[in-house]
Amino acid sequence: MYKNVLQAIEGIEIYPLISFSIFFLFFLGLLVYVALMDKKYLQSMSSIACEDENHEITTLDSAKQ
């Protein structure tokens, strides 16, 4: 039943192409973003989980005071 309804709509074949293009471009952009990230920033972010919980993290608000 639904197959017949969707076949009757003109121009519907473009929507799967558009959605795949958006999906592909998003993940391609994400891959480029991750590849170009600063390696020092990634290293500092990965070490946060290993730091002591009592270690004070300096933020912009506390740096101004």
Score class of each variant (00 low, 15 high):
residue 23 F to W: 03
residue 41 Y to G: 01
residue 10 E to R: 10
residue 29 G to Q: 04
residue 58 T to A: 11
residue 16 P to Q: 03
residue 62 S to L: 01
residue 31 L to S: 12
residue 39 K to R: 09
residue 14 I to N: 08
residue 36 L to G: 07
residue 48 I to N: 01
residue 16 P to I: 06
residue 33 Y to V: 07
residue 5 V to H: 12
residue 24 F to N: 01
residue 20 F to R: 11
residue 39 K to M: 13
residue 51 E to W: 13
residue 2 Y to C: 09
residue 36 L to M: 04
residue 17 L to P: 00
residue 24 F to A: 03
residue 30 L to W: 12
residue 1 M to Y: 15
residue 63 A to W: 12
residue 57 I to F: 02
residue 45 M to A: 06
residue 30 L to Y: 01
residue 46 S to Q: 15
residue 13 E to W: 11
residue 43 Q to F: 11
residue 19 S to N: 11
residue 2 Y to S: 10
residue 38 D to A: 03
residue 53 E to L: 13
residue 58 T to L: 13
residue 7 Q to G: 07
residue 9 I to A: 04
residue 2 Y to W: 10
residue 24 F to Q: 00
residue 42 L to D: 08
residue 29 G to V: 03
residue 22 I to M: 12
residue 28 L to P: 07
residue 48 I to E: 13
residue 1 M to S: 15
residue 11 G to V: 06
residue 39 K to A: 05
residue 42 L to S: 09
residue 2 Y to V: 11
residue 38 D to K: 04
residue 53 E to M: 03
residue 17 L to H: 14
residue 23 F to C: 09
residue 49 A to K: 12
residue 47 S to A: 02
residue 58 T to R: 11
residue 42 L to P: 02
residue 61 D to H: 00
residue 3 K to I: 05
residue 11 G to M: 07
residue 63 A to K: 13
residue 8 A to K: 07
residue 3 K to T: 08
residue 64 K to Y: 09
residue 64 K to L: 14
residue 60 L to T: 00
residue 45 M to P: 00
residue 20 F to Y: 13
residue 21 S to Y: 08
residue 24 F to G: 01
residue 40 K to W: 07
residue 1 M to F: 09
residue 37 M to D: 05
residue 34 V to H: 08
residue 39 K to N: 04
residue 36 L to R: 08
residue 24 F to L: 04
residue 60 L to Q: 01
residue 29 G to T: 04
residue 35 A to L: 09
residue 24 F to Y: 07
residue 27 F to G: 06
residue 43 Q to L: 15
residue 20 F to A: 14
residue 44 S to E: 13
residue 4 N to E: 11
residue 4 N to M: 08
residue 38 D to T: 07
residue 10 E to C: 06
residue 49 A to N: 10
residue 47 S to N: 15
residue 56 E to F: 01
residue 58 T to D: 08
residue 53 E to V: 03
residue 8 A to V: 01
residue 33 Y to C: 05
residue 32 V to G: 03
residue 23 F to K: 03
residue 41 Y to E: 09
residue 6 L to S: 10
residue 27 F to M: 13
